[in-house]
């Protein structure tokens, strides 16, 4: 992790009519940092993430992502980030190789590099004998590991992970985090949401959204101190249990 700021937001807000989905989000994320983005259902995480990915225009506030302006340079933002979620990551009816080539092409990996990088990725993942199999036939854990590798295949500055390990078995879930650590060591910033509170402990810093606001932002250690809690689960519970939006919005 370095001191270079790769995500910087200042009072970033998204409003739908009277409803303020994300309210004055101000934060800085560093290069190579593993940044945990937590919150109750309906807290505004998805809204905030969509703005940071350049997919949704903020109502007010400012932000730069990888140095690019969130209003004017959304296309550059998209080229410099990777994204994967639990729900959508790869095309099930394309093979492993076809998926890598497809996403490599979309993210503008130069043709001359493509072949060599595909080969090296397949080798690193140990998927040589599966390279020509349909992604739909792979076990979920492999799919998620492949999806993550594809999301960082174009060597983005930042990768956004939306519940990447949901439903994954406990062994593969840990292997997935090994991949996250590797990417972070290479200087890629990881912006990750999760429902597993042990995974919150693996983040350098964690933020908690409640009712559209950022209610806490610090290292897991300091958050536990601040809330006199034994675990991140207790911190989460303490912050989220009085949320107003959980039961009547979204």
């Amino acid at each position: 992790m370095t001191n270079e700021v790769v995500i910087k937001t200042d009072k970033l807000t998204k409003q739908y009519g009277d409803f303020v989905a994300a309210n004055q989000i101000t934060l800085e994320v560093y290069q190579g940092e593993i940044f945990g983005f937590l919150g109750a259902n309906g807290a505004g995480k998805t809204t905030a993430m969509r703005m940071l990915c350049g997919l949704s225009t903020p109502s007010s506030g400012s932000a730069t992502i990888g140095g690019f302006d969130i209003y004017k340079e959304t296309e550059q933002i998209k080229k410099n980030i990777g994204y994967m979620s639990q729900k959508f990551s790869l095309y099930e009816d394309l093979t492993v190789m076809e998926n890598i080539r497809f996403f490599g092409g979309i993210y503008g990996v130069p043709d001359k590099d493509l072949k060599e990088r595909m080969r090296s990725l397949i080798e690193t993942l140990g998927l040589k004998s599966e390279a020509d199999k349909l992604v739909g036939s792979l076990p979920l854990g492999w799919k998620q590991k492949l999806a993550f590798s594809v999301a960082i295949f174009h060597e983005p500055k930042i990768v956004f992970l939306d519940e990447p390990t949901g439903g994954v078995d406990p062994v593969t879930r840990r292997q997935f985090w090994d991949l996250i650590y590797d990417a972070s060591d290479k200087g890629i910033t990881i912006f990750v949401t999760t429902h597993y509170m042990d995974e919150a402990e693996y983040c350098n810093r964690v933020t908690m959204m409640v009712d559209g606001y950022i209610k806490a932002l610090d290292t897991p250690y300091k958050l536990k101190q601040q809330f006199s809690a034994d675990s991140m689960d207790d911190v989460f519970y303490e912050l989220a249990r009085n949320a107003k939006r959980r039961e009547d919005q979204l």
Partner: peptide, 10 residues
């Protein structure tokens, strides 16, 4: 309890 936050899970 899949996909719901930890408060709702409890």
């Amino acid at each position: 309890t899949t996909g719901v936050d930890t408060v709702s899970r409890k």
